[in-house]
Every structure is written in C-alpha cells, then in structure tokens.
Design a protein around this nucleic acid. Sequence first.
DNA 1: GCGTCTATGTAAGCAATGATTACATGCCCG
DNA 2: CGGGCATGTAATCATTGCTTACATAGACGC
Lengths: 217, 217
Amino acid sequence: MATARRSSAKVRSIPARGYHHGDLRQALVSSGLALIEAEGAEALSVREVARRAGVSSAAPFRHFPSRVALMTAIAEEAMRRFHAEFVAAQEKAPKDDPLARFRAIGTAYLRWAFRNPTHFQILSDRTLFDFEGAAELRRQDDEIRTAMEAAVRAAIAKGQIHSDDVRLLHLAGRGLVYGLARMQVDGHMPRWGIAEHEAEKMAEAALDLLAAGLKRA
Amino acid sequence: MATARRSSAKVRSIPARGYHHGDLRQALVSSGLALIEAEGAEALSVREVARRAGVSSAAPFRHFPSRVALMTAIAEEAMRRFHAEFVAAQEKAPKDDPLARFRAIGTAYLRWAFRNPTHFQILSDRTLFDFEGAAELRRQDDEIRTAMEAAVRAAIAKGQIHSDDVRLLHLAGRGLVYGLARMQVDGHMPRWGIAEHEAEKMAEAALDLLAAGLKRA
DNA sequence: GCGTCTATGTAAGCAATGATTACATGCCCG
DNA sequence: CGGGCATGTAATCATTGCTTACATAGACGC
C-alpha cells in the first residue's frame, strides 16, 4: 500500500520514497523554510523538520552536522533567490542614469524584503546561521553591496550628487533601505491604518526622498 | 558555616542570603542581562540564570511564569534605561530649532544603540519577548516615536523642510536611524578599516545628510 | 511570645530538543 | 553477484522549559 514501488529503472531521477529518500537534503531545506515561514525561526527544530520530511530524527545529521548548519543551508537558499531577483532588477535598471540606478537597486531590495519577509529576516539575522562559513552567501552579499556602491560612484562622477563621499552616501542609502525593510519585518512599521501594500510604497517614497535630497540643486 | 545568620533585625533592607533570597526577581533580571551581554540572547536559559543567581532551577518560575516573561522583564529594564537617556537628551536639545531637534533626537538614539548594542538588540527584536504584554515598555516606545514626529511637525510648521508629509518624513528619519543602528548590532556595518568609534560618527553624518537633504533650499 | 498563613524557596520528574553511537539497508560498481 | 559506501533507523544522553509536591522562613494576629 504505502510501498509504491519505483519501476526498477534508474531511480536517481525519480524522487520516490524507498528506504532511501530521493533527495533528503533538499527536502530538509524546503520544509525547513516552510516551517520558518509558518512558525518563525525559533520554532525550527531538527526533529520537526525531520518529521515533516518523514524521516527519523537522526537522519538530518547525515546531511548537516548541526542545527546551525541546516539553518545556514536555508539561509543560502534564501540568498540564492534574493540574488537572482536582484540581478534581474539590475539588468532592467537604466544604464546611463546612475542616480536612477541607485534608486532602482534600493527599490528592488525593498520590494523583495517586503514580499519575502521570512527570507529577509533569516538573511539579516546573522545569529541564526553561520555567516562566516557560508562562502557563497557572502560572495552574493558582497556583489549586491558592490553594485550599490558602484552606482553611487558613477552618480558622483556624473555630477548628479552634491557630495563626493562614496562611503557616506553608500551608508546612508543602505542604512535607509535596510532600516525600512527591518522595520517592516520586525513589526516596527507604524500602523497608520493604511493598507499593507501601502507601507511598501511609503518605504519607496522615503527612499526617493533621500535620493532627491542628494541631488545637485 | 554557610549559614551566616543575619542579625535578627528586619532583614528586609539587607540583601543577605538565607533560604530566602533578598530580591531574587531583580537579581534574575540583572544576571540575565549580563548573560545576554556575554553570550547572546539565544544563550539565555532559565536554568543558567538561576545557576548564576545561586538558586534552584525552579525558583525563577516563582517570579516569572515563563522564559519569555523573564525576557520581557529584561527588555523592560533595557527600555527603562533607554528612555531615561532619551529624555535627558531631549531636554538638552534646542527648543526653538525643530530641525536641529529632530537631528538631536536621532543622534541620541544612534549613540545609545552603538554604546549599548545588547540592550538595543533585545528591544528591537520583538520575537524575543512579549511586546504586547509589556505595557510600560510600549508607552515609553510610543513617547519616543511621538517626540520624533512632533519635531518633524514643528519643522514643517516653521518652514524648515521642503515637504509637508509628516508620515513620510518621520518614516524616512526613523528608517535611517533604525537601519544604521541595526546594521551595527547585526554586523552589517561595512568594515572600512576604520576604528570602531568612527562608525558611530559615520552614522551620525549619514543622518545629517538626510536632514540637510530635507532643508528648504 | 506563639502559632498559623503565605510567600518563596527546593527536589524530583515530565516531555522535547540537539547530538552521538551502533546497527540496518540498499544502491553502485567491479 | 557480492563487497563497500552512502544513507537511513533505533536507542541513548545531557540539557532545557515547565509542573507538582513538599519545605521553610517571615509576617501578622492574638
């Protein structure tokens, strides 16, 4: 009954369930992400994830040496998605208007955070996983930071901004975007009785405000 | 030997240790805060706190119904300190220059967060404690938000700012300050090889940048 | 003083969790 | 077809949050 036998052929491609799970590692990451989405990061336990994947409580330790390692894999998955979307937004952004580009990058960051609060929360809270040990994640994170900084640099070179302190401008931009995103996921967004999706527009407007303030008069 | 007898008098004032602890509740909050300071919020366990206070593992439950309740008391203690410092800064701020006042409030917020990262982290992460159940904390939090909003409103009334959207301006200011503070405690501050205390000045400069951008030309 | 009542501590034990160890199973490759 | 390795299970441990039953010290009425 439960033993829906796979048909002798090379099982590798079929994610069927025998004694050996098709791809437990990925299954654990997926159900882990789903669990966090539903119950919060604190609620993620190795045993619960194993339960949802239908395996014994010791099985996950074949793929991850510790709970933190599992969380790290989940964070890397989240970063992979964020990075992909960021790259896509990056390509659609105007090539010849650095300030607009800076704004576009910030907006993409904000939109992603607002629409994937759980993913964003995992990524931003580095006490949840092993940041140092996640090389790929760090690389993608750096790439995003670098892109933002490049936009600022280009805007300065083009004389679009009335300041030439790259670090400071970058810090202000990133600080604002990061802050707005975290306010949202941390529940610090003032409730002005406006619809949820309005908060996102509001945040984007705040970013515009900064960009406008930087413009050369 | 261990029974250093208190001298008959009204013990109440003396924090001596008999079978009954002088003021266990406060002792738990204090050692809890110290523990978080040293090991991070995740590391706080009721048993460890009890151990450090020299009582049995069940004793804390006489004072707090749950671990979260203990964390909430710790958060309230942190907020009390923050609020006190905020009020002090508020009084020193210029009365007649709202924009400068707005800036002063933001700076005080930033300074506190940079110098008390643990306290700030506890307060900002509402998954750590019971925000809804902490009435006094909520009141003090509101008071700070209100003060910031009032400064913005006054700046608009005085024609110091080239915009009249109070909510938006407030959001931008709070978002930036909150973001810079969280970047610091979350370990997202770019390491530019500058000294630690320079980061604080940098953050303040970013705030100035926003304030300047808002100024009427 | 004295006895009792209550606040506050202890001891022991429960279920759940992260992690380890010894064992089982089945897929892959010679 | 048969050995070996990857991947699963079962059983177990220490630790944790929390509860229950019991102990004791202080406070208070008399």
